[in-house]
Structure formats: structure tokens, C-alpha cells
């Protein structure tokens, strides 16, 4: 290729993606959630890792999560091009080719699993490998375009990171790490269905069988309420287990009351009301759901810190 031909190209060519494009393939915003929940799982565990091992574990878990994101974008580039929310991603925008994304994702996936094994233990690496497999093969390739329950089952993939963090520290799976898994698992459906309600049109156009498309928006509103009630019962109940305590209980009561208030409001509204105020309540519930998860995991971390200082329980004997 001559310099002249290079100068004629005014836009990015496939195969010439920048560093930022490959970083975008890792879904950095999702990675923040993965890193945070994995870190809480790791720090809340009763076994302390060496700080360098802990840092390595978090980085490799993040890399594994990013690899799953890249493979997801590789498979979904056709529907990403159809949706307003995703059409500027590196593959549909033409900055990275599908083959590049696949090679990048699969290499990073293998690398992150092997490195997590070397840095911590085989169980943590095995759960990370299963998480990547579950997200890419079970959710992305299998469920997403096939069943409206895609979000419910696929939510498990996003729920594994605290379990991986816990396993990295302890080398085991316990009731505490399963509870952290359950918290994210139950939180995912109302979180995504609230998004699906106000991102109307996107999923319809792409032919993704979201609940809003297959069962209608009224049914989706009912589903959000039911799942939020189940989530609230589980989240508040967790206060009386090993990961809970008084700080967690206060946080859980406040945030579940707020989330329930929004879920009831969403259930009572119809499309005319929602369109009239540009989905104000649905958008508020979506934003709140992000704070909800952050607050619960921060509270779990706070309880672990208090327990480390010998303040666990604070008079709530028998909780820990």
C-alpha cells in the first residue's frame, strides 16, 4: 500500500482498530461491575490473600470478563448494527473485524483462565472458565435469540464474579458466596427489563425475543414487580446470614423499599402514562438498580471489615 493510498483513506479501515477499540470490546462498563463484585467476594472471604495475589486475581477475573464481552460482540455484531444503543461498537462501526474480535476474545479467555489458575487456584480458574462458557455459549449463542427468559438464565453469568473472588481466596465454594451469586442473579431481570421498557424499539428491530416483545409490555411490568418482590425477600433475608449484619440490614431495608416502590409504580403505569413523561419512572428504577447492587456489595464489604475488627454482629449475636 502506497502512502498515497493511505492518505486517501479518511475513515478507519477494518483491521486497523486502535487500542481504545480493542479496549471497548472488553465492555469496560460491565467490567466495572465484575471487578467490584469479585473484589467484594475476595475481600469478604475469611482467608486473606497476599495483596499482589489479590491484585492479580482481580485483573485476571476482569480480563476473563472482558474476553467474554469481546466474544459476545463477535457473535452479536449483526444485531448490534441494528440497535441504536450498540451500533457504534467497534465491529458494526467497521473499526475491528469479526475475526479480530474472535481471535482477541478467545486468546484473552484462555490466557485469563490459565493465569488465574497460576495466581490463585484451580477452582477459581474453573469457575471463571465456566462463566465465560456460560455467557458466550449458553447465553449469547444459545438463549438470547431463542427465549424471552434469556435475561433470567443469562443473568447467572454476571452473578459468578463474587463467587470467583471468594474461591480465589478460599479455594472453595460456600453458602456465603452462593448468597452473593443469588443476589446478582435475582437483581438482573428487573434491572434489564426496566432498561428494555424505555429502550423500546431497539430489541424489536433486532428480533431479540425480550419479554417486552414476546409477552408485551404489560406482562413485563408485572414480571418486574414479581422479581423485585422475590429479590427483596432474598436480599433482606441475607442480612441474617454470614454475609449480613446490622449495617447490611439497614442498607437492604432502605434500598429494597426504594426498589419496591419503583417496581410497584412501574406495574401501575401503562404505556400512555410512560410515554407522557418519557419513561421517567422506568429510567429512575434502572438508575436505582445500579446503586442498589453497589450499596448491597459495599455493605457486605463493610460487614466483613467489621468482623475483621471483632465488631461483627454488633450485638446481633448469632448472625455471623
Amino acid at each position: 500500500m502506497s502512502d498515497a493510498s493511505l492518505h486517501q483513506a479518511s475513515t478507519a479501515q477494518p483491521g486497523e482498530g486502535g487500542f481504545g477499540d480493542f479496549f471497548a470490546l472488553l465492555k469496560p462498563r460491565v467490567m466495572v461491575l465484575v471487578v467490584f463484585t469479585a473484589l467484594v467476594g475476595l475481600l469478604a472471604a475469611p482467608v486473606a490473600l497476599h495483596p499482589v495475589e489479590a491484585l492479580a486475581a482481580i485483573l485476571f477475573i476482569a480480563a476473563g470478563g472482558g474476553a467474554a464481552g469481546a466474544l459476545n460482540m463477535w457473535w452479536e455484531s449483526d444485531i448490534d448494527a441494528l440497535m441504536r444503543r450498540t451500533r457504534r461498537r467497534p465491529i458494526p462501526a467497521g473499526r475491528v473485524t469479526r475475526d479480530e474480535a474472535f481471535a482477541f476474545g478467545i486468546t484473552l479467555a484462555a490466557f485469563s483462565v490459565v493465569m488465574l489458575w497460576l495466581a490463585t487456584n484451580a477452582l477459581a480458574a474453573a469457575i471463571l472458565a465456566f462463566t465465560i462458557f456460560f455467557y458466550v455459549v449458553i447465553y449469547t449463542v444459545g438463549l438470547k435469540r431463542w427465549t424471552p427468559q434469556n435475561i433470567v438464565i443469562g443473568g447467572a453469568a454476571g452473578a459468578f464474579p463474587p463467587m470467583i473472588g471468594w474461591a480465589a481466596a478460599t479455594g472453595s465454594v460456600s453458602i456465603e458466596s452462593v448468597l452473593m451469586f443469588a443476589l446478582i442473579f435475582m437483581w438482573t431481570p428487573p434491572h434489564f427489563w426496566a432498561l428494555a421498557l424505555f429502550m423500546r424499539g431497539d430489541y424489536d428491530q433486532a428480533g431479540v425475543p425480550m419479554l417486552t416483545v414476546t409477552h408485551g409490555r404489560k406482562s413485563t411490568r408485572r414480571h418486574i414487580l414479581v422479581y423485585t418482590v422475590l429479590l427483596a425477600v432474598m436480599a433482606v433475608g441475607a442480612a441474617f446470614t454470614g454475609i449480613g449484619g446490622p449495617v447490611y440490614l439497614i442498607v437492604a431495608l432502605v434500598f429494597n423499599a426504594l426498589f419496591l416502590r419503583d417496581a410497584v409504580a412501574i406495574w401501575r403505569r401503562d404505556e400512555d402514562m410512560a410515554e407522557a413523561d418519557d419513561y421517567r419512572v422506568e429510567k429512575r428504577a434502572f438508575r436505582l438498580s445500579l446503586w442498589y447492587l453497589f450499596a448491597h456489595f459495599t455493605a457486605i464489604l463493610a460487614e466483613a471489615a467489621l468482623a475483621g475488627l471483632g465488631l461483627g454482629g454488633l450485638g446481633f449475636g448469632g448472625w455471623a
Partner: peptide, 30 residues
């Protein structure tokens, strides 16, 4: 295009340097 390639190479270089430092730190810790 050259700027983009330079950015990608620089980014990759920094990631590799960070990885080497991490493996060194891990070795010391282990």
C-alpha cells in the same frame, strides 16, 4: 492511521510491561 497504530503499539507495550511487573510481583509473593 500511523497515529492510531502508534497508539495501539504504545498501549500494548504498556500492557505487556504491566504484565511483566505483575508476574514478577506474583513470583516474589509466592
Amino acid at each position: 492511521l500511523h497515529k492510531r497504530r502508534f497508539g495501539r503499539n504504545l498501549g500494548l507495550g504498556l500492557v505487556l510491561a504491566g504484565f511483566v511487573a505483575l508476574v514478577f510481583g506474583l513470583t516474589i509473593a509466592k
